[in-house]
């Protein structure tokens, strides 16, 4: 509960502050970029959620060797799936934005 509340504060406080500190047109650019970059969590969250029960079971069984293997496998899978999408977004930011908004470069 506390972690969720703090995470919401952490991810939303910039938008709340920027909406007050910046002119609307400039804030709109930040908001659009924020929506697209937050979409990356749709790729990383399910991987963490899928491995969590396995981690908990292996900790209960005290099977440290398998736990280490599962941990590194999950980390690599997350880097492959979410990392790849993020890097495409970084390198092709203008292409993605132009295709998504229909706004020419």
């Amino acid at each position: 509960m506390t972690i969720t509340l703090l995470s919401v504060l952490l991810t939303q406080s910039d938008k709340i502050l920027l909406s007050r500190l910046l002119p609307l047109k400039v804030f709109a650019n930040y908001a659009v970029a924020g929506v697209l970059s937050n979409a990356l969590y749709m790729l990383s969250t399910p991987i963490g959620a899928a491995f969590y029960p396995s981690f908990a079971q292996l900790i209960t069984l005290r099977d440290v060797a398998t736990l280490r293997l599962a941990y590194h496998q999950a980390a690599q899978l997350s880097a492959v799936v979410m990392g790849s999408a993020a890097i495409v977004l970084i390198i092709f930011a203008d292409t993605v934005l132009s295709a998504w908004t229909g706004n020419p470069r």
């Binding site: 709109a28 930040y30 969590y41 997350s78 880097a79 990392g83 993020a86 470069r105």
Partner: peptide
């Protein structure tokens, strides 16, 4: 908009990538 938002998107996506790496350790 594309011209102005893409530099911000690049940096934000980099930050989110770093944050996403923390998902499994979390």
């Amino acid at each position: 908009m594309t011209q102005d938002a893409s530099p911000i998107l690049r940096v934000l996506a980099f930050g989110t990538l770093l944050n996403g790496f923390m998902g499994i350790p979390y």
